[in-house]
Design a protein around this nucleic acid. Structure first.
Lengths: 231, 231
DNA sequence: GCAAAAGTGTTTGGATTACACCCATGC
DNA sequence: GCATGGGTGTAATCCAAACACTTTTGC
């Protein structure tokens, strides 16, 4: 049996891949960049970058998110780690994937220096992506769906003020399933929401009431109770 | 802004940490080793090792498991990745944690060359471990509990033939909660079990019937149905 | 008035709970 | 016989699904 010296192991790099999910017009989308450099030049990819040698993983994910979108202080959720020896053509790169949930309409997307283009792409017509990014994206989406059922992350995707129907449509899209309106509202009765006096504008039907998630009350209640978001 | 050359990133190493959960006498335990070398010499630790430069992550986890326990072909589940810059005193080491579930009584544990001792330790009186291993262990245990509620992994912990009471006790331990016997049995009615003619031996009460998990039927049924293991 | 979606109430059947009771074994 | 846990039935309750109905807005 051969023995490898400790330092010989230091021949690999880590990256973070940062899946940014957004929701708009009844669809969940992912923010992709068009690579302006080799390898996989001109292919669409999940925004990602190598981790600096003295940088924490989550910090790196937040940096990538900031560099790409200008967003700060977004909760990053660790997804999974992908490390097939040949997944990166230039060397051994193990990538830790994180995902963030944001409101698409809350900010303007700009292609940063090393990305040729940046675009929201619907999960339903995803092109072939660079590296193993199709795989990373689809398994991360599965993890998002798990989280949607157990934590109040849906409110990171919805606008700050939303109608109950928008709320329902998000779950209907994610789980590809229609829900009964009356029953859906009974189920969410336990989730603390703030009811505003404000209503929908410019709709040609009865305007819906707007709600916000009451995070503070939720967090106080979570200490002793457990919530579920299975719809 | 400074620019880091691609090769300068290759100054880190990866390891896998392999949490081996076992169940015996009504308790979930983890297999720990006593480190026979620096750093953290003589402290208990989760078995782990650096990943070879051309080795896949899951392959590495399986190798570590085999080197330590002699076990082969155990399903490894990825847990999380831990990468605080200073978590390893000898350099930047990012570790990907995996966990396996085994039947404690199915095999003899032997300390391998680089481990001074090896022992099953109850989760309820865990000593201070090397590195950030207490943290890794407790977050991996949370992930195990999530899996216990959604996948039939409990049968990897139980003996091949088990009584319904043993089955129940496993969930009672994991979720620290008592269940009604009759109701528990109604809930698991949908899980395909093979009922054996064999019964418990040498018990001073009515001997319980032994069951096995009917994996084949379960997998056929899972194609269209979804199961839950919430008790 | 009509279309469209908001918003709410009722009925029903199946699942969950709590609890009671009988059964088989060792001593 | 009795202690111990194995094993099952039942009634009360809760919950979720299905569906119907009323309300409010624009045109």
């Amino acid at each position: 049996m051969y023995r490898i010296e400790f330092n010989d192991f230091f021949t690999s790099a880590f990256s973070v891949d940062c899946i940014i999910f957004g929701y708009s017009h009844g669809e969940i989308k992912a923010l992709l960049i068009k690579r302006a450099m080799e390898p996989f030049e001109n292919l669409w990819a999940i925004p990602g970058d190598l981790i600096y040698p003295d940088e924490d993983l989550e910090e790196a994910a937040e940096r990538v998110l900031f560099e790409l979108t200008g967003l700060k202080q977004i909760a990053m959720h660790q997804s999974q780690t992908f490390g097939k020896p040949n997944r990166h053509p230039q060397g051994r790169v193990i990538t830790v994937s994180y995902f963030a949930l944001i409101r698409i309409d809350d900010f303007e997307v700009k292609a940063s220096s090393w990305a040729g283009d940046v675009q929201w792409v619907s999960l339903e017509n995803m092109p072939a992506l660079a590296f193993d990014h199709n795989h990373i994206l689809s398994s991360t989406y599965e993890i998002l769906k798990l989280k949607l059922q157990n934590e109040p992350v849906c409110f990171d995707l919805l606008p700050e003020r939303f109608t109950l129907n928008e709320f329902q449509q998000l779950y209907e899209f994610a789980f590809d399933q229609a829900f009964d309106k009356a029953n859906f509202r009974k189920k969410i009765k336990y989730i603390p929401l703030i009811a505003h006096d404000e209503k929908q504008q410019n709709v040609k039907h009865r305007p819906a009431k707007l709600f916000s998630f009451d995070k503070k009350t939720f967090e106080e209640a979570t200490v002793n109770n457990s919530y579920t978001f299975k719809m």
